[in-house]
């Protein structure tokens, strides 16, 4: 049952890609080499080596606790905020090691934005939520520019039509799906190069999920996107490349089509056919 639906989803993605003539591989935006993560005594991520290609959606799948979220958080150094977390190996963004002491984490995060599992709008107005990033980074020289950034970001996140009459009402008052799109708009407003999404739809209903997936597909034009998901259908629907993690190890990475139709590794096959997970 499971495999059939995944295959169906695969087919549509494949059709899309063929229609766009997007067959040649893009250059690597992020290169992780031998990345290890320890939480205290726990070895949470083991020797992960992986490329994230520019202009594509890469999805991380795997059973819960497999390290996919941990790896995602390595990519913009969100792990720094966790006590007792150590990262070793290299992670390069455009060829620069982001764990190099010379790299400034604030500047890095301005380039690599993130959207979380649970929508987390600030307890501020919708406008202020989106304007937050541009304000702290000083991206707008005046009010008009700021307005423009906010409107464009909301537009890109597909939320503008729904909220344009109530920009001053609190962001926490929106529905779950709207809140998540607000968070995406907030991330876009900083004009990042990469957007990381940590199970962005897990707290949402199917309709809101569909909207976000649609949005991810549109955003691919301008941003490199990495998405962690526990739903294989979602990975199949939105991503071009898929990486499968298991017990802190990267088992297999490849074109989404190949992973779902012809996995090379037994574990991957077991997972996508629903034998465990």
């Amino acid at each position: 049952m499971e495999t059939v639906t995944v295959r169906d989803a695969m087919q549509t993605t494949l059709d899309n890609r063929l229609a766009e003539g997007d067959a040649t591989p893009m250059p690597a935006k992020i290169q992780a080499r031998q990345t290890n993560v320890h939480y205290g005594d726990k070895h949470a991520l083991k020797d992960v080596t992986l490329d994230v290609r520019e202009g594509e959606v890469t999805s991380f799948i795997g059973p819960s606790g497999c390290g996919k979220s941990t790896f995602l958080r390595c990519l913009n150094r969100m792990n720094d905020t966790i006590d007792g977390c150590r990262v070793s190996g290299t992670v390069q963004l455009d060829g620069e090691d982001i764990y190099d002491p010379k790299i400034d984490v604030v500047q890095l995060r301005a380039r690599v934005g993130m959207v979380f599992q649970k929508p987390n709008p600030f307890p501020k107005s919708i406008y202020d939520n989106v304007a937050y990033g541009p304000r702290i980074h000083g991206l707008a020289a005046n009010k008009d520019e700021l307005d423009e950034i906010v409107l464009t970001s909301l537009e890109k996140a597909g939320l503008l039509a729904e909220v344009k009459d109530r920009m001053e009402s609190p962001g926490t008052g929106l529905s779950g799906g709207q809140q998540q799109r607000l968070c995406i708009a907030r991330a876009i407003a900083v004009n990042p190069e990469v957007i990381l999404m940590d199970e962005p739809c897990s707290a949402l209903d199917p309709i809101a999920t569909a909207k976000i997936e649609e949005l991810i597909d549109e955003l691919r034009e301008n941003y490199t996107i990495v998405i962690v998901t526990h739903s294989m259908q979602q990975a199949a629907r939105v991503s071009q490349r898929t990486a499968f993690f298991h017990l802190g190890e990267l088992i297999e990475v490849g074109d989404t089509e190949q992973i779902f139709t012809n996995p090379k590794h037994k574990l991957t096959q077991g997972y996508i056919t629903g034998r465990f997970g």
Binding site: Q107, A110, I136, L139, N191, P192, N222, T224
Partner: peptide, 26 residues
């Protein structure tokens, strides 16, 4: 300036420069 910040796809040097300019003060 506004064009660089708003319309440059995939980040871009403009945003990066603006962020870098404010970093010392911050």
């Amino acid at each position: 300036m506004s064009e660089m910040t708003v319309d440059t796809p995939r980040g871009g040097a403009g945003t990066r420069a603006l962020v870098a300019a404010g970093i010392g003060r911050r």
